[in-house]
Design a protein around this nucleic acid. Structure first.
Lengths: 213, 213
DNA sequence: ATTAATTTTGATCGAATGGTCAATATTTGG
DNA sequence: CCAAATATTGACCATTCGATCAAAATTAAT
């Protein structure tokens, strides 16, 4: 009758990858919305438009699926938040760091929330990941900052606490968005809210570090 | 035989109140450790040394119990974190605020965590509470800060974002303690860690606000 | 002391959920 | 075109969990 416009023909048998991607994206959304424990594999199946057994065909257990979601998140996390560039100097580098981290929390709000939920729930998987990959990263950034201090570009700071603060400040807007909305008296957060957040957080960080122009 | 030292005699039939208090305290601990959804009424019962049916005798449902825990938390929260005193001026007031809030997060770490879990899970009960009691409080504190600004005691700031930041900074050490421990390379957080946190957070806030001495 | 109210507790139930399986369908490779 | 590999799916199972209940025990009131 009608001319077939099925797109499946030209697509190679990426069936597996395609479905895994779909399931992961859906799971991320549902986990973020419902919470890790409240989420059922049935919910994910329904929202992905697949039977539940199909979910379990690609991911043996709910735990496996959650860890796959977390791994994807954590991976893109460490990758996309650019490292400090010592050449930029503290002002440009810190400003960019805050801006990118807030952007990322905003764009990947679901991923950010799933990660925060796993962290607050002390999921062993996430803690292991942090121990393995994050601590080293922190050391490198610490060295950069200490170099800046020695060059007189900024005041000495307790670097670990600076990073704890940076983390807390930039994630709040995604993880506790419900509370933020209430405090700002808004139903949804807009571009300008994030801009204001960037501006104020940057101001806090730069002034506390005594960054010279 | 031995002289009775049972304290139950003089205690009036506080049975109900006594058990409710025990259950609430236990539930707070278990909820904080296991997460809201993973916690079972059986766990709470075991840890309180009571049969499960007894829990349900005092709190009709798990949801009721959680909300009772949250209400207690939220109540003591708003009560014990002292309001700004305009007379103190921004430096003393903000310094004290940060210090008290971090102390409280530390002392009531379980309560703080349960609250954060409920918030991130967007429990309607908590959001309602914030809408009802918190927004008004915020308005009052906003007025105080604006008065300070007009008196030239500090720079103008986006007050809502300042409070979002204060909230985030002071709660992180309790809510995401697992992550903080990893970043600090410690198994437990000690007095000195909290002192350092207070110091640095205060420094961020005061410098960002351009507080004059 | 008797009665009424409150509390305790084991037993039990129904619903929900993670996970399995085997039968069927589809895709792939030769 | 055929066989092997891969994917789909409904039916099903074991377990867990919140909640209920009724009988028994304890406490309070008169």
């Amino acid at each position: 009758m009608t001319i077939s416009k099925r797109p499946k023909d030209q697509l190679k048998s990426h069936i597996r990858e395609q479905n895994q991607t779909l399931i992961l994206a859906t799971a991320e959304r549902v986990f973020a919305r419902q919470g890790l424990a409240k989420t059922t594999t049935q919910m994910i199946a329904d929202e992905a438009g697949l039977p539940k057994a199909n979910i379990h065909y690609y991911f043996r257990s709910k735990k496996d699926l959650l860890e796959a979601v977390l791994e994807k998140t954590l991976h893109q996390w460490l990758e996309s938040v650019s490292r400090f560039n010592e050449q930029d100097g503290p002002k440009a580098a810190l400003t960019r760091y805050v801006s990118e981290k807030i952007d990322q929390s905003r764009i990947n709000a679901n991923a950010s929330k799933v990660f925060a939920m796993a962290l607050i729930g002390e999921e062993e998987f996430v803690l292991d990941y942090l121990r393995r990959y994050f601590v080293g990263e922190l050391q490198r950034e610490k060295a950069t900052i200490e170099a800046w201090v020695e060059q007189g570009l900024m005041d000495p700071v307790p670097v670990e606490h600076l990073f704890i603060s940076l983390w807390a400040l930039t994630q709040t807007y995604a993880d506790f968005d419900a509370q933020v909305k209430i405090m700002l008296g808004k139903d949804i957060l807009e571009e300008e809210d994030y801009d204001m957040a960037k501006q104020f957080v940057t101001r806090m960080v730069l002034s506390a570090c005594g960054v010279k122009d």
